[in-house]
Simulated scan of single mutants.
Amino acid sequence: MALALGVLVAVAAGAAFVAWRTLTVFRTTPYGDVEEKVVVVPPGASARAVVRLLAHSGALADERHAWAYVRWLKRDHRAFRAGEYAFQGPLTPDQVLDRVYLGQVRLHRFTVPEGLRVDEIAEIVQRSGLAPAGAFLAVARDPAVARALGVPFSTLEGFLFPDTYSFPRGVSARAVAEAMVDRFKAEYARADAARSPGVSFTMGEAATFASIVEKETGRPEERPRIACVFRNRLRIGMRLQTDPTVMYATLLRTGRWSRNITRADLHAAHPYNTYTSSGLPPGPIANAGAAALRAALAPADCADLYFVSRNDGTHVFCPDLTCHQAAVRTWQIDFFRHAAR
């Protein structure tokens, strides 16, 4: 009898050792390949259900061993957190499980380049999978949202700061827009701290002015001088006469966007058309970056009133009409005449 009991104890001890050894090997062995596995843990899912999801997705090697490990060895009393998770192996079980315990959810990233309109940004948000373009546009064009976020216009145009953003699955279009406006305010505060004496733009005027500077040149080093030109025009009561405002006005008038400006577009009366209207347009025409914001509040010191493209992204600047006409002849008329030969 004693011998039989001893044999049973030995068998049980051996089985326990084998089980312990199996789970130890399971715990220390990385599993998985470079292919990303995405797992969505629903709210209220039990620990067993989460382990099953992770195993079936290929993030954990074996459901039975994983559950035994969680139940008997890891014995972590934290709750698994709901959310979307991404795993790219090989990873140990602890690396997989701790990510869900800690709520290190998968983030969807998107980048907004400088100088885009709100409708173009909406398409970028949609491609990220975070929110439909229509939902984002509805938020960005809602006057109540603009008021709540402290934007001095009826839409968020000009206040959606160009940057790279990361959000978890399920974020609202409103939350995305709020984050972008917060980034604008932070960058505006930095630019405002370096404001030049005599520049009295409000935040709304600065955003509007910066959007024009942004659209006129892609060269950061030119933005302070472009800003100087437009500031000089405003100071003497000269119309800004900037083509990007004509294109924006045409979009608002007709619903079509085109870089080809017609004579009719130039002469069409519209508050955003700075060929027919004096002063700043009623609001921003795009969403400017940090360099354009800084240039708006700290323009260069110059006597220029005109600039002409060299057709390589840079410009020739002129203080008077005689210089400007000569530059137009050289860089527009003669340049394209020679190019057509």
Score class of each variant (00 low, 15 high):
residue 341 R to H: 14
residue 295 A to I: 10
residue 174 R to C: 08
residue 50 V to I: 07
residue 263 R to W: 14
residue 334 D to W: 09
residue 178 E to A: 14
residue 327 A to T: 03
residue 267 H to S: 15
residue 89 G to E: 10
residue 249 A to Y: 04
residue 155 T to L: 11
residue 107 L to E: 09
residue 322 T to G: 14
residue 261 I to H: 09
residue 115 G to W: 00
residue 248 Y to L: 06
residue 205 E to K: 07
residue 13 A to Q: 07
residue 122 A to I: 09
residue 215 K to S: 09
residue 190 R to M: 05
residue 68 A to I: 02
residue 294 R to Y: 11
residue 151 V to C: 10
residue 206 A to H: 02
residue 285 I to P: 01
residue 19 A to N: 06
residue 304 D to Q: 06
residue 108 H to T: 00
residue 237 G to E: 11
residue 161 F to C: 01
residue 296 A to E: 14
residue 28 T to E: 15
residue 201 F to S: 03
residue 94 D to L: 08
residue 135 A to S: 15
residue 191 A to H: 04
residue 140 A to V: 07
residue 212 I to F: 03
residue 27 R to I: 00
residue 326 A to I: 01
residue 295 A to T: 04
residue 83 G to L: 02
residue 12 A to V: 11
residue 317 F to A: 04
residue 172 S to M: 12
residue 221 E to D: 15
residue 239 R to C: 05
residue 45 A to G: 02
residue 199 V to N: 04
residue 176 V to F: 09
residue 212 I to N: 00
residue 102 L to A: 13
residue 76 D to G: 09
residue 312 D to K: 13
residue 71 R to W: 13
residue 184 F to R: 01
residue 77 H to M: 13
residue 310 R to D: 08
residue 290 A to S: 14
residue 87 F to C: 07
residue 238 M to L: 10
residue 8 L to Q: 12
residue 82 A to I: 08
residue 285 I to S: 04
residue 31 Y to A: 07
residue 228 C to T: 08
residue 308 V to K: 05
residue 224 P to T: 10
residue 39 V to P: 03
residue 274 T to F: 03
residue 330 T to W: 01
residue 319 P to Q: 12
residue 71 R to P: 05
residue 237 G to V: 08
residue 24 T to R: 06
residue 141 R to A: 09
residue 196 S to P: 00
residue 38 V to F: 02
residue 295 A to W: 08
residue 54 L to Y: 11
residue 254 T to D: 10
residue 325 Q to G: 02
residue 318 C to W: 00
residue 135 A to V: 07
residue 4 A to N: 06
residue 338 H to R: 15
